[in-house]
């Protein structure tokens, strides 16, 4: 033996050139560095918004969340009407979009229609999700608000804003619910039908319970979207800083407040808006993280 490994062509096998190894390693390190950068990006976003909000946090503390006035002239700022509007508009949107979205998901995961036509519907739902929110806002302003005149809507207010929001989150709910429903194994459906259940007994007592964590995850992701939705809301909600129980009154949300006031804001008002953005970021982060955890649970089943 010469001590060198010989391949079948009789040539010695050389170790890889060191330059090649360095390139290989640096490629892997670069890939890893970019991946870490994504994690740091989220921390950077939170940090930037928080650091801009510090003057307002020092000035108003936690009372900012429960205070009502928003007065740039006297530099007194409170977020309660915006938080109230955010919660009401999101809750109304979910109330409308959840039953319809799950209905659409059932329709698209059962064999009501041939699969070719089903794919067309799935594409239409995807398209609905891809239309930018400013286009929804434009349509809402010029078509939906005049259309709602018979029910008493005379100007941009809570009702058209909540309706447009429900149209916008509908595709999200139906797409994720449909995935969850069609992932339920065929055996379970067949077993239920074999036991004599009708189609709807199968759907309501077997398929939906089995898919429930996926559906709930989808609803929570949609809630996150609804809470942070900006352009359509700022165009349709009327941007009035008041707490009103009437759906026909103008209101505001946190994101609409930021989008509406940021351009003209100065001094402490900018900081107050950053504080509002920070509150919104925390709320949506919590909702999104909970949604992730619920969806993860689904994947384990």
């Amino acid at each position: 033996m010469t001590g060198k490994t010989i391949d079948s062509y009789g040539k010695p096998i050389e170790p890889r050139a060191s330059s090649e190894r360095i390139f290989d390693n640096s490629f892997k390190i670069a890939a890893k560095a970019f991946a870490i950068a994504i994690c740091l990006l989220i921390i950077w976003i939170i940090f930037q918004v928080f650091s801009q909000a510090i003057p307002a946090i020092k000035e108003f503390g936690l009372g900012f969340i429960s205070n009502t006035p928003w007065d740039p002239i006297r530099d007194v700022f409170g977020l309660w009407p915006s938080i109230f509007g955010t919660l009401v508009s999101s809750a109304l949107a979910l109330l409308i979009a959840v039953p319809i979205g799950i209905g659409v998901a059932i329709f698209l995961s059962e064999d009501y229609i041939p699969s070719g036509i089903q794919r067309v519907f799935v594409f239409l739902v995807e398209l609905l999700a891809a239309i930018p929110s400013v286009v929804y806002g434009l349509w809402g302003l010029f078509v939906l608000v005049p259309f709602l005149k018979p029910v008493g809507v005379t100007r941009p207010s809570m009702l058209p804003a909540a309706l447009i929001l429900s149209i916008m989150i509908l595709p999200m709910i139906s797409a994720i619910s449909r995935d969850a429903l069609s992932n339920v194994s065929k055996d379970m459906r067949q077993a239920a039908i074999g036991l004599g259940a009708t189609r709807w007994e199968t759907i309501l007592q077997v398929v939906i319970p089995a898919a429930s964590s996926g559906i709930i995850g989808g609803i929570m992701l949609a809630l996150g979207r609804a809470l942070g939705e900006t352009m359509a809301i700022v165009m349709l909600i009327g941007n009035s800083n008041q707490v009103s129980t009437s759906l026909l009154q103008p209101a505001t949300t946190i994101s609409a407040l930021i989008a509406n006031q940021f351009a003209e804001a100065q001094g402490l008002q900018v900081s107050a808006l950053m504080y509002a953005a920070f509150v919104l970021a925390v709320i949506t982060l919590i909702v999104n993280i909970l949604a992730q955890i619920v969806v993860k649970q689904l994947q384990k089943i």
Partner: peptide
Amino acid sequence: QLPEIVRFATNVLNGVPSVIVGVFAFAA
């Protein structure tokens, strides 16, 4: 563990409202 964290971060980033991205880019 890192890939799991990165996937999580990507999903969280996807859920950050665009208005927050806007004020972040303004500040940064």
